[in-house]
Design a protein around this nucleic acid. Structure first.
Length: 568
RNA sequence: UGGGGGAUAGUUUAGCGGUAAAACUCCCGGCUCUGACCCGGGCAUCCUUGGUUCGAAUCCAGGUCCCCCAGCCA
């Protein structure tokens, strides 16, 4: 039977049930509760975006594109005392780099200040909000505790007219910071602290990056967020778990205001990653206290730092996809990130040779004063990547780690009497070593087998190891920066101050590295594989003829594990 | 007896009454002109105690542990 017409008329089966939020969206669509899905990514522009934001960005923009909807980028700029244009710019750059497009939908909560203000008056008129003159400390005392109900403010029963008058005067700038606030009149005895007459507006004589000095009062997050969602017709307002307690307030405001749409808030567990921190507070401190060189320090878990390290956006998306979305508190092993980076880079990264810690190798039977050109593949599995020329000669450099004078049993690499292959080159055998005054090996004296040119011996004999190398006659000096975990424990700060857990060795700068000349053409930020070592990307700090490379991620190193095991 | 959430391998996640699935890590082995990649194999008292059921990670009841909330931050 040839079921020629069996192809379903429906488009490819929608990928349903990938996580509980997508389940909800699908169900809303199926039930007709939602016509077009609208999500939003709502950062406050007070810092750089990090891995945690990447999860939220992929979720919100991902849902929008999977369900044929839209995702807005909205700046939650309701607190001018901590927000800067620098962050607004960096956030847009990072979201774009991650591969997402908000189209026409670049919004700011500050765009809605006038509307929000009108709604505040609406609440006052309905007797649902009041101006409170209680000083902050007294207000805190009146709020009660987790186990005791709060006390009503003495200002709670002001007349609508008085409230309106005072609120307008707050707006006009008549009162100093902190003199009064506008509060929702809900329930001072609620078990949910957010419902104990939450503050909706506060007086802030501060210059706003976008509205300048037009306002002397600013809405709080709670008063701005849900209403902004409603104005933009956001259908699914996805945020992290710590806002769960705010949902009843979110809903209360939506229900008491004449908003144009009915958004719903859903929460998921925020991302935590081992050996790093993802709180703005900590990241800001790392930058301001100069524990790192900046927000884009390659050790930082920021998008900018990760990008500078050489990680492609696709790797971040892959990582986020592997991590999943759920409501359970969790900390992802940073090894999962590394794995996603390697898996993304392996099929596409061009191969090059670079010697990080050079050790001279002299081929005694190679004709002096001559060199030759060999062909090296740019990718082992992809012939389309082509080949390049590398220079071979009598004097070469190999990796110090690739030689041991007294090797342990499982050491495959070079040692006196041992034969190995130089990648794309010849078989060489170590005959003797030269030592410096301190007794350290400074050069290896070897012989080569001219018949093994290209990497294979005609007699079919095998070698256990293939080493990368660089020719003394044709090499470029480079600086290479090796990065490791910023913190030296998987849960920084678990015992107190996270900064006390900083890893003092998170950056190792290698200055005497030698790389093949083809690397001079490497584009900034795009990782290449240094064979047998790892993925590296050119850093903007590079000078002409003096490249600087960042290690994006190391290759898996089974030998290092074996060694670590035997040393124990 | 404040309110709100969460517990599935070392780590994330799937499972939605039919006898635990995937990725990462780790261990063993194979392959290899990268000790990479790749390919085999291994690694789970489903927090706990009871109950319902022919059958429970899934349903019910009671415990335990963990997280969030007392900003005029978001």
């Amino acid at each position: 039977m040839a079921p020629t017409e069996a192809a379903p008329l429906e488009a490819a089966p929608t990928e349903v049930g990938r996580d509980f939020i997508r389940d909800i969206v699908q169900a809303d669509l199926d039930a007709g509760r939602t016509q077009t899905v609208v999500t939003r990514f709502p950062p406050e522009p007070n810092g750089f975006l990090h891995l945690g934001h990447a999860k939220s960005i992929c979720l919100n923009f991902g849902i929008a594109s999977e369900f044929g909807g839209a995702c807005h980028l909205r700046f939650d700029d309701t607190n001018p005392t901590r927000e800067e244009q620098l962050f607004i710019d960096s956030i847009q750059r990072d979201v774009r780099w991650l591969g997402f497009d908000w189209g026409e939908h670049l919004h700011y909560a500050s765009d809605y200040f006038e509307q929000l203000y009108a709604w505040a008056e609406h609440l006052i008129r309905a007797g649902n909000a009041y101006v409170d003159d209680t000083p902050p400390e007294a207000m805190r005392a009146q709020r009660g505790t987790l186990t005791e109900p709060g006390q009503n403010s003495p200002f709670r029963y002001r007349s609508v007219d008085e409230n309106l008058d005072l609120f307008r005067r707050m707006r006009s700038g008549e009162f100093p910071n902190g003199a009064r606030v506008l509060r929702a009149k809900i329930d001072m005895a609620s078990g949910n602290m957010n419902l104990r007459d939450p503050v909706l507006y506060r007086i802030l004589h501060a210059h706003h990056p976008r509205t300048g000095d037009a306002w002397s009062i600013y809405p709080t997050y709670d008063f701005a967020h849900g209403q902004s969602d409603a104005i933009e017709h956001v259908t699914h307002s996805v945020c992290t778990l710590e806002f769960e307690d705010h949902r009843p307030l979110y809903d209360w405001l939506i229900e008491h205001l004449p908003v144009p749409s009915r958004p719903r808030q859903y929460e998921f567990a925020r991302l935590n990653v081992s050996y790093t921190v993802l709180s703005k507070r900590h990241l800001t401190r790392l930058v301001t206290d100069k524990h790192v060189t900046g927000w884009d320090d390659p050790r930082m878990p920021t998008i900018a730092g990760i990008r500078r390290r050489g990680v492609p956006a696709a790797a971040l998306r892959e990582f986020v996809g592997r991590v999943g979305v759920a409501r359970a508190y969790s900390t992802v092993d940073v090894a999962m990130l590394d794995s996603a980076i390697r898996d993304t880079l392996n099929p596409i990264a061009p191969r090059r040779m670079a010697v990080l810690r050079p050790l001279k190798l002299i081929i005694e039977n190679y004709p002096e004063g001559t060199t030759e050109t060999l062909e090296a593949r740019n990718h082992p599995d992809n012939p389309d990547a082509g080949v390049r020329s590398v220079t071979f000669g009598r004097e070469l450099y190999v990796e110090q780690d690739d030689f041991m004078e007294n090797p342990p049993k499982k050491f495959y690499r070079l040692s006196p009497g041992k034969e190995v292959r130089l990648r794309y080159g010849y078989f060489v055998t170590c005959r003797s070593v030269e030592k410096g005054p301190s007794g350290a090996v400074v050069a290896l004296r070897c012989t080569y087998d001219p018949a093994s040119k290209g990497g294979n011996a005609p007699d079919g004999r095998k070698v256990q190891a293939t080493l990368h190398w660089v020719a003394a006659a044709d090499t470029v000096p480079a600086e290479i920066r090796l990065y490791s975990h910023l913190f030296n424990r998987p849960d920084p700060g678990a015992d107190g101050d996270a900064l006390a857990d900083l890893n003092p060795d998170s950056l190792e700068v290698l200055s005497g590295c030698l790389v093949e000349p083809a690397l001079l053409d490497a584009p900034v930020g795009e990782a290449v594989q240094f064979e047998r070592t790892g993925y590296f990307a050119l850093d903007p700090d590079s000078q002409p003829g003096r490249p600087v490379f960042n290690r994006t991620v190391a290759l898996r190193d089974t030998w290092a594990k074996v060694q670590a095991g035997t040393n124990r």
